[in-house]
Design a protein around this nucleic acid. Structure first.
Length: 772
DNA sequence: CTATGTAAACAAC
DNA sequence: GTTGTTTACATAG
């Protein structure tokens, strides 16, 4: 798998217990080699013509299900299922079918949901599956063909079976081997950092019957250090609370709970590092409780992207699968997985240092992705496409990969997804076929697309992903200079105040409900005009002198990608935003800030905020004025503002990357960019679909997002409303492996998949009228 | 050089 | 001992 980074999502799942029992199940079956062996892979087998296998067809499938032979893949049938269909039952039926057919029968079934709103089918389906490396690998391989972008997002996120639990998976830690059951590891384990975690983990695993492989993987992955920086984890922790504030102790606890590594493996010194990060980064603001007895750590509103693990993994609300959030979360999960499907595998090593957040987060939004997908189907080479609108080079950049928590993949219990994003950060993780390159590109030019954010490295946030924007947009930040002044030209920079150390003083400054205390030496106030949110905040700033922070101060925003492309089309940018909305949910703000972590933000945040015009977030530089290449520049003012609000969350970004530039463009403005027109149809559909699901929900839901920001997006979304049906976001591929039904592959994605599966020129619609 | 991680010294509770 | 702040140093990119 490794080789194929980009693959769309194909999940292969193993059914543990299908009714049938096919028992065999097994684990054994994994196709170890995946490629080699496995199912006939289609990947590239386009040439092969599908063999007929239809014969097996008759099953007792629920009404509305169509089965057709895959046009290009041998032994593969495409099963078109209605949104509401019960996946489980379908799977069962297929499984049975497969058996019936015997070795001669179709090895794989690709499930495609014809309806936009697919509902989660039963969780059941998901439950059963287990992933094995092999499986994954195989899946990936297949998917791989399709470039990541496409595939990746493809999914609506609605995988029926996914539970929150799945999405919730934090990292690997909680997953139970069975895949479904999340076990809260933490609870079980107590804090002892000292205790050998592995043992414990094992114990748990043991309890679970899951396949050994899986469990081992799981274990390993759990033990590994999460790919998030302390800053990112802190943000996740804080943002996981309603009030967006947390005591130090709770932060420790949260991290331990969510990242077993810290509980069991890490040295005690990690807590010191947490404290260090809290103090170091301006984005973390300490507030005192009303009574002044308890100090809470919060994230400066302007800097807060509202990143949470959940975003990545789980639905914000955890709502029902139907909820937008849910879908998004799912999406994100998928994205992550895609990004680095194998990340969780033991083989992979994390870098000693955590990768920049940016890379990790990367959630992708559907809208974007979808388009991508479509495109892919269209055939545009990603790069190519992009190039059209953008420069090729840029395109590449865009492709930055995001990594998401690798674990995620694992976590997604039921399904394992593979998707590949180009992540720059860790090369290891994928191999991008494509454009993967790095951030460097990004750095310089942020793609205009909103969605993608340029990533600077800085940005890296935990979850964030950085997308690279087309060059135009990107701006770099300046270094510290970036003080508010620069940033916000428009805004008065604020004052910097120094303050006494005393907390009380500090408090006054804070906007937060709670009085924040800052001890810092300097405070700055910002106002964020636009947003209420930002209001004035006092940020603490450290002395510039020595503290690292100061250095960072530069601009929080620099990284944020803003969407924008002023040039190209403002409108587009907006659109993007709109498209992205889903991301917004949580991240909207974040985007603006984008950098929360890394970038300048982080630290800068505090200061930065101030500067920032409020525009939402970030701080960034609103002004389009690039005042110099300020990093912010990319953020267009107008857009930025809004956009920021909208959120550029990393998530979106990622998508962009995946998609070819074209897509991006499309996203930005379908209209505007002709390139895609052809694609549009499908993309739109896709978008719509997603939008429906994702967007609406997320937007609204996301607390963080400013209304304003959201609004923009929202409008469009509606516009997008197309028939959902068409979207095929999901596809499930069931691999019956002849006898063994146990394996199931899910393909979610389309774009990529299409290429892989169907071949470059082909699209499902050709074969499946309904899809059209 | 920057971002990040780590360790440690200190101070205030 | 905990919480915070700072410094210093190391490392990766």
């Amino acid at each position: 798998m490794r080789t194929s980074p980009r693959r769309p999502l194909i999940l292969k799942r193993r059914k543990l217990s299908l009714q049938d029992g096919s028992a065999s199940n097994s684990p054994a079956r994994d196709e170890p080699d995946g490629e080699s062996k496995g199912v006939p892979k289609q990947e590239h087998s386009r040439e092969d013509k599908p063999r007929d296998r239809v014969e097996c067809g008759a099953q007792k499938f629920p009404a509305g299900i169509k089965i057709i032979n895959h046009p290009t893949m041998p032994n593969t049938q495409v099963v078109i299922i209605p949104p509401d269909a019960d996946i489980q039952s379908i799977i069962d039926a297929l499984t049975a079918k497969g058996r019936e057919c015997g070795s001669n029968g179709p090895n794989k079934f690709i499930l495609i949901s014809s309806g936009g709103s697919s509902r989660p089918t039963g969780s059941a389906a998901t439950q059963q599956t287990l992933q094995s490396k092999d499986e994954i690998s195989t899946a990936t391989k297949r998917a791989r063909a399709a470039d990541s972008p496409s595939g990746a997002l493809a999914r609506d996120g609605k995988l029926g079976g996914l539970d929150n639990s799945l999405t919730n998976i934090q990292w690997l830690g909680k997953m139970s081997s069975d895949g479904l059951g999340p076990c809260t590891v933490k609870q079980e384990m107590e804090k002892e950092n000292q205790t050998p975690m592995q043992e414990r983990i094992k114990t748990e695993e043991d309890s679970i019957p899951a396949t050994a492989t899986f469990s081992s993987l799981w274990q390993d992955s759990m033990l590994e250090r999460p790919p998030y920086s302390y800053m990112a984890m802190i943000q996740f922790a804080i943002n996981s609370t309603e009030k967006k504030r947390m005591t130090l102790k709770d932060i420790y606890t949260w991290i331990e709970d969510h990242f077993p590594y810290f509980r069991y493996v890490a040295k005690p010194g990690w807590k010191n590092s947490i404290r260090h990060n809290l103090s170091l980064h301006d984005m973390f603001v300490r507030e005192m409780s009303a009574n002044g007895k308890i100090s809470f750590w919060t994230i400066h509103p302007d800097a807060n992207r509202y990143l949470t693990l959940d975003q990545v993994f789980k639905p914000l609300d955890a709502g029902s699968p139907t909820s937008p959030e849910y879908s998004e979360s799912v999406r994100l999960s998928l994205c992550r997985t895609l990004a680095d499907p194998f990340s969780f595998l033991p083989g992979r090593k994390m870098k000693p240092l955590l990768p920049r957040v940016s890379s990790y987060l990367v959630p992708i939004q559907f809208p974007v992705s979808q388009p991508l997908i479509l495109q892919s189907s269209l055939k545009m080479p990603q790069p190519m496409a992009q190039g059209a609108s953008l420069n090729g080079s840029e395109v590449i950049r865009s492709s930055k990969r995001v990594r998401i928590a690798p674990k995620v993949s694992v976590s997604t219990p039921a399904y394992s997804l593979c998707y590949v994003l180009p992540s720059t950060e860790e090369p290891s993780s994928f191999l991008p076929t494509g454009p993967v390159k790095e951030k460097s590109h990004c750095d310089e030019r942020p793609p205009p697309f909103a969605p993608s954010q340029s990533v600077k490295e800085n940005n890296s946030q935990p979850g964030e992903a950085l997308a690279c924007f087309p060059a135009a947009l990107c701006i770099k930040e300046e270094k510290e200079d970036s003080y508010p002044d620069k940033w916000l030209p428009s805004f008065p920079p604020v004052l910097s105040i120094k303050e006494e150390p005393v907390q009380s003083d500090e408090e006054t400054g804070l906007l937060l409900p709670v009085p924040c205390v800052k001890r810092e030496k300097h405070f700055t106030m910002l106002k964020s005009p636009p947003r209420g949110v930002s209001d004035t905040v006092i940020i603490k700033r450290r002395k510039m002198g020595r503290s690292r922070r100061k250095q960072h101060l530069v601009l929080p925003c620099s990284e944020e990608p803003v969407l924008v492309l002023p040039e190209s089309c403002g409108s587009d940018s907006f659109r993007l935003v709109s498209d992205l909305p889903s991301l917004q949910e949580t991240q909207s703000l974040e985007l603006s800030c984008s950098q929360e972590e890394g970038g300048p933000f982080k630290t800068p945040v505090k200061e930065m905020f101030c500067k920032l015009p409020v525009s939402s977030t970030p701080s960034k530089v609103p002004t389009a004025t690039p005042s110099m290449g300020s990093p912010d520049s990319w953020r267009l003012a107008p857009i930025a503002k809004e956009s920021s609000e909208l959120d550029f969350s990393p998530v979106r970004t990622p998508q962009v990357p995946f998609t070819s530039l074209q897509e991006n463009l499309d996203l930005l403005g379908f209209n505007s960019t002709p390139l895609k027109n052809s694609l549009f149809d499908s993309p739109r559909q896709l978008l719509q679909t997603e939008s429906n699901d994702m967007v609406s929900g997320p937007l609204t839901s996301s607390p963080a997002s400013n209304p304003e920001s959201t609004k923009q997006s929202s409008p469009e979304l509606p516009a997008s409303g197309l028939p959902e049906n068409q979207s095929l976001m999901e596809g499930l591929v069931l691999d019956t492996m002849n006898n063994s039904l146990s394996k199931i592959l899910l393909d979610i994605s389309f774009s990529g998949l299409e290429d892989d599966i169907l071949g470059p020129e082909m699209s499902w619609s050709q074969f499946i009228p309904e899809l059209r």
